[in-house]
Design a binder for these strands. Structure first.
Lengths: 308, 308
DNA sequence: GAAAATAATGAGTTTGAATCATTATGCCCG
DNA sequence: CGGGCATAATGATTCAAACTCATTATTTTC
């Protein structure tokens, strides 16, 4: 007598499917394989005796039946989330500090909205950013001066820490539309050799292009620095040099034609962000939710971002 | 990153727990073992870091956290059920005939309310009772003159049919409060020997006491028949004989002291009801729901009824 | 205080949900 | 039109969650 074939898991899948538009992306977002989702869908469709979505079209299109289930998901999953938050409160885990240490300038672009979304859900949590960017924030977390650190790439395992993937973004090269390099479909490391590279005034370690592309290739262009993203874009637009920034920072500058962007290297330059917490912290409901909420916000809102 | 530990299954469990008042009963209702529920609860409680219910008290008492989850269940599960009904409609399985064949008189007591509850959920289903009680309704189902038959005990497997347990009820002996047998804590078959047994005018096959108790024991009391349950009770109350009826039929007669009831045999006389459908019919959403709905209504509303 | 109900526990088993490795399908573009 | 890329389907295999079984512990009842 198997009453409920349907489980919350399936509703999560449908939601992801709707947001991502295809099985593979949705699977990545759910930390599952494309195969898993395919099997899942097939089982559901067999059970209900009707197709739930048309997959050979981009993005996937939900049938009437699929839409009905999607609506169910939209109604039910938030209720579940609410209940679980309240349970955390009832279990005495509804409040506490959440100090976030961030390495990179640009992260503030998404960190602020994420914090804004988080605050009303967990009014009992004291949310702070550990200001002044820290070269290596991991010791902060280890000695409990921060609950969470955002770091690049997955660091080697540490006994006290646990790492959760946040997302992968693309760093793109920026130049004025009239710049000679704008003619190329993508840039190689060598293309930077005779250029002026405009960056934030931070160590090369913390600059994606330098760390992952130019330093390995032994390229060392002229440099110029600016504190603010707008200032960098200003300099680029006026032809004073080229820059490399995460794709998400520059959406409307591109749209307005002030600057153009080109991938760095054939497949583009991908950078991975992780959230580090102490292992004990990874159990705390509000820290977990901060991570998942941030991830999910970034994946849906930010340009050029994909699941990790 | 296992987000949802909670699944619909758990919500079903909580609901059953609330209705049944203890793990064992709830487990039976869900077709699971008591052990399964115990493990389930423990896992949930470990995950949320708080106790959900106090089990060493009858009925179990939900904690604040438990109540919150129970509320979630009460909100979410009906939404899921609604969605699934609509899916069935969208899949083209929202309508069709549902002709129910019933063996026993008393079954109408619960069949009517069940049908009343069912109708608004499936307006497209043509619900009928195959009237005139049929001695053996199984052939009706086999040759598709009925979609569902209610039968006693689990019949031997038949190639075309599938049987679903409905519930178990107790048949009790009824007598006037002043009757000598009322002094006994329970009745043996032999006690019936010199009595007048008042029954419906149907073959012994279809009378629980006869079939499962007196006939096996070779006891054959005087007989008197009446068509209606009230008439039987009237005769019993006025000392004209004793009767045996399902415990559920007689609640308020007992309460008012007109008659008293005694178990038949040490542990009482238990009878099992099953729903028979054609194997193909067991797949049809509305037939499945009719069965589960009926079962669940009877289990919660009827006296002396337990899960099978 | 014994018997009956009920719950907990840990080991063992089953099942279903995932992955892996591969094949199929559709789409774009030269 | 055919090769290459992105995406989905498939079936075998793996793995772990969830269940059962057998037993012990606890509580209730008479």
């Amino acid at each position: 007598m198997p009453q409920p074939v349907l489980e919350l898991r399936h509703l999560e899948t449908l939601l992801a499917l709707d947001e991502c538009g295809n099985l593979s992306k949705a699977a990545a977002r759910l930390y599952l394989t494309q195969s898993a989702l395919s099997h899942q869908l097939k089982a559901l469709e067999r059970h209900y005796g009707t197709i739930l979505l048309v997959k050979n079209v981009r993005p996937v299109r939900f049938t009437a039946a699929g839409t009905r289930l999607l609506d169910l998901a939209r109604s039910v999953l938030p209720q579940v989330a609410d209940a679980e938050r309240e349970l955390a409160r009832l279990a005495g885990g509804g409040g506490g500090p959440l100090r976030v240490a961030v390495q990179c300038h640009n992260c503030f672009d998404w960190l602020m909205p994420a914090m804004d979304a988080f605050r009303p859900l967990w009014p009992g949590v004291e949310l702070d950013i550990i200001s002044g960017f820290v070269a290596d924030p991991l010791p902060l977390v280890e000695r409990a001066d921060a609950e969470l650190a955002v770091v690049h790439d997955e660091p080697p395992a540490r006994p006290l820490l646990s790492f959760s993937p946040l997302f992968r973004y693309e760093s793109v090269a920026l130049m004025s539309p009239t710049h000679p390099l704008a003619a190329k479909p993508w840039l190689e490391a060598a293309d930077f050799q005779d250029q002026t590279l405009i960056t934030y005034p931070v160590p090369d370690e913390m600059l994606d292009v330098m760390k992952h592309c130019l330093v390995p290739a032994g390229v060392n262009p002229r440099r110029r620095t600016a504190e603010l993203t707008v200032a960098i874009l200003q300099l680029v637009a006026s032809g004073r040099g080229i820059a490399a920034l995460p794709a998400w920072t520059i959406g409307h500058y591109i749209a307005r034609g002030y600057v153009v962007s080109r991938p760095i290297g054939r497949g583009g330059l991908r950078c991975d962000l992780y959230a580090a917490t102490r292992r004990a912290g990874a159990e705390v409901a509000y820290i977990r939710e901060f991570i998942t909420l941030t991830r999910s916000l970034c994946l849906t809102e930010l340009q050029g971002v994909s699941a990790l």
